[in-house]
């Protein structure tokens, strides 16, 4: 719990990767291991089944330069269960993340927090005498901004889903 605004850190370069895989056990381990091996941090990871129940989509944000990401992406492509991999960082895309944010909200500041939430179109989904839990959806940057805004009230807990991404228009990964 902190009341000070976090000092902005130089952000490592991030790449957003979209991976379509066979929906079978063990695939995630294989892919993650290829990043771990090079010491690349996975900033976020979202895995779920797609419109085809036999196929899952992994969306991952990794902290590494583009050239390194490209080299690992090629190795990811070798994994037998991997169908498609694409670095979508520079592609026109829609990107969303969902976060649950539990903020200290004693009676005196509660309305202020809820007002801020409205601006961010965050919805309160739980309320107690001391806290409010908000659901906020948007780009990772929007969620970062919201967290910064409510930081001074004391953020008790955050759960973020990590980005999910689709390409704009009729393009597919």
């Amino acid at each position: 719990m902190t009341n000070a605004l976090p000092t902005p850190q130089p952000r490592p370069e991030r790449r957003v990767l979209s991976v379509l895989v066979d929906n079978v056990p063990g695939v995630l381990l294989r892919i993650v291991a290829l990043f771990r091996r090079r010491g690349i941090n996975i900033h976020s990871l979202a895995v779920s089944v797609t419109e085809d129940p036999g196929v899952s989509r992994i969306t991952m944000t990794v902290e590494c330069p583009a050239a390194l990401a490209e080299s690992v992406v090629k190795q990811v492509r070798r994994v037998v269960e991997v169908r498609r991999v694409r670095d979508v960082t520079d592609a026109p895309r829609t990107e969303r993340e969902l976060a649950l944010v539990k903020v200290n909200a004693p009676a005196g500041v509660r309305s202020e927090i809820l007002e801020a939430a409205q601006v961010f179109r965050a919805r309160p989904i739980d309320l107690t005498e001391k806290t409010v839990t908000l659901e906020v959806t948007g780009s990772p940057e929007k969620i970062d901004a919201f967290l910064n805004l409510v930081a001074r009230h004391g953020v008790r807990e955050v759960a973020r889903t990590g980005s999910v991404v689709l390409l704009r228009g009729s393009a597919t990964t």
């Binding site: 490209e70 080299s71 090629k74 190795q75 492509r77 070798r78």
Partner: peptide, 8 residues
């Protein structure tokens, strides 16, 4: 034959 070797 292995694309991941090219440019590695």
């Amino acid at each position: 034959i292995d694309p991941s070797e090219i440019g590695k």
